[in-house]
Design a protein around this nucleic acid. Structure first.
Lengths: 325, 325
DNA sequence: TTGTAAGCGTTATCAG
DNA sequence: CTGATAACGCTTACAA
């Protein structure tokens, strides 16, 4: 460590640069001055090897790149995480994990380069992530697909309840043939929303038979809507599990000559930017996406600091009325 | 290293796990079997400290989080990078760098945790990145704002030429009051596009006075369009420096009662997803965004492998005609 | 408050 | 082909 040319030993330099304690103020100032002048940057690998901490946190998005980043909810979660981590001492590593490189990522996450892991949007096919917490603290956004023995920390809305609220709103509008466009079947949040929608219809004495499986994307949502409409032209209400699919559904409906909301009322989920840029502004279930991200980061930071935190945190969701329903 | 319990020394384990050479096939098989059984994951910090390589690459997006991820061009670049890196031995670290944490990021990039850096969307206010290549190989997407002494590697379209093509297309449509909505003034690509637009108008003997400054975002594009329209109601053509702003401009025009393209013709840039989801499908200058990402990654990988590569790589752009012009 | 010295978990050099 | 042994650059008791 060349900075020892400041007239002191490496230990002192280390202390001056990090601890701020057990060193005289004068030494601190001097060492820092010299370090700055020499453009010294501590080697992070050596640092974490010696201290057994990396001061880095990984945010894992287990989705093929492009897909994930087209989802405003996920992007907002990322922004929240990023903001909260920024003003901590930790550094954020964003990893968009396509299916292929899952093993690679797992190896990375367990190799000691990160002190904690944040997982957004977990699918059941990525169940390795569920057991990652044996080796490093993990916080999920969205209920994990499986309850593990030491349970996983997570932040989520009450998806089933929120979906029921959405379905009930459509019912209160007098709709009787209410379909749902779901998220991917291997995600807990998606399943919960479908369950909530079904419960509301059943409670109203209606059959819950109109289900189109989507995948959060506009393409998937449009395809589901088209199939639904063709098989059941009498549809008069749609609850889509996110705004992106809802917006796509609105497009399909309009193109098919139906008016929204008079012929078919549509409710989305997320209250994301997609809700406002849809051809008909969407009525939707709000979800504090960015706040969720901040909460995830905050929780992890606290776990890392040794605090005790609750396993699950429920964030609020409520109906936001706009033009589509 | 517990795996030494396989009956050999650490050295042999290391060789068996990495090199595949200087070890007998039998030993390799045995060691790997034991390692797998024990769930052994090499410590990455120790590894890079000893080998002086991290096998990681950083992709830096020097934009405040949300902004960047709302830009389909950037997202596509990211996807391309990600794809190319995935099937290399390197690991990708995505860092969205808000203004605040610039120093933090610079320290990270120079601390030896990454072997190379990819920079998307560089602004002149982030000029520290321009000199990063003294310490670690760097490849930019988009011409850097400044020519440094050892020059920086970059991939870009010929922005000025492409902008001229766009402006000339509007001219060929008989438009005479052609405005431009620019990108942020501190980005080279944005400036080049404005220059190209200006050159075309001047060559046609027209004044190039209608300039609205945008920032790549829908909000910025809409604001610029509104201001332009108010100050110059006679506008009959608009060249927006990206599709997102072009789409926003179309919205503003329609809401102001102008029809597109009859009253005002609009040309965008990128040929991104935004071009198709605009209220009037956009005529735009294509840019192979995802390919650009792949090229960036490829170039860096080759530099890392010790190959000689060209400083600048120009990718193709051409006019894509749709409804808006 | 500062120095000394022992690691941290790997790779790499050099013998054997 | 394999085993010792010395780094890698830093932190951290433990002494001084």
């Amino acid at each position: 460590m060349v900075a020892a040319e400041a007239g002191v030993t490496r230990s002192t330099v280390s202390r001056a640069l990090n601890a701020e304690r057990d060193v005289s103020a004068a030494t601190i100032a001097h060492v820092r001055e010299v370090a700055a002048r020499m453009g010294y940057v501590p080697n992070r690998a050596a640092k974490s090897l010696a201290s057994a901490r990396s001061m880095a946190i990984a945010l894992v998005i287990p989705e093929p790149g492009v897909l994930a980043l087209a989802d405003p909810h996920l992007v907002a979660v990322m922004a929240g995480v990023s903001r909260r981590i920024e003003d901590s001492d930790y550094l954020l590593n964003l990893m968009v994990a396509g299916d292929s490189e899952n093993a690679k990522i797992m190896r990375y996450l367990t190799s000691g380069v990160v002190d904690g892991v944040l997982v957004a949007s977990q699918h059941s096919r990525h169940d390795a992530l569920l057991h990652l917490h044996d080796l490093v603290p993990v916080v999920f956004s969205g209920r994990p697909t499986e309850v593990t023995d030491p349970p996983n920390y997570f932040i989520d809305v009450d998806n089933a309840r929120a979906a029921s609220v959405a379905a009930n709103h459509l019912l209160s509008l007098g709709r009787r043939r209410i379909a749902t466009i779901t998220g991917p079947e291997d995600m807990a949040a998606a399943g919960d929303r479908t369950d909530g929608w079904r419960a509301a219809l059943v409670a109203a004495g209606l059959p819950a038979d109109l289900v189109g499986v989507g995948d959060w994307t506009a393409l998937g949502g449009a395809a589901a809507m088209r199939a639904l409409l063709e098989a059941h032209p009498d549809i008069d209400g749609v609850f889509a599990a996110n705004d992106v699919m809802a917006a796509a559904a609105v497009s399909v409906l309009l193109d098919a000559g139906r008016s929204v909301p008079s012929d078919v009322a549509v409710v989305g989920f997320d209250d994301s930017s997609a809700a406002l840029s849809a051809r008909v502004p969407l009525t939707t279930m709000s979800q504090p996406s960015e706040h969720t991200g901040e909460q995830m980061a905050d929780l992890l930071l606290r776990i890392l600091a040794g605090e005790d935190v609750p396993i699950s945190t429920v964030v609020e969701s409520h109906l936001v009325r706009r033009a589509s329903a």
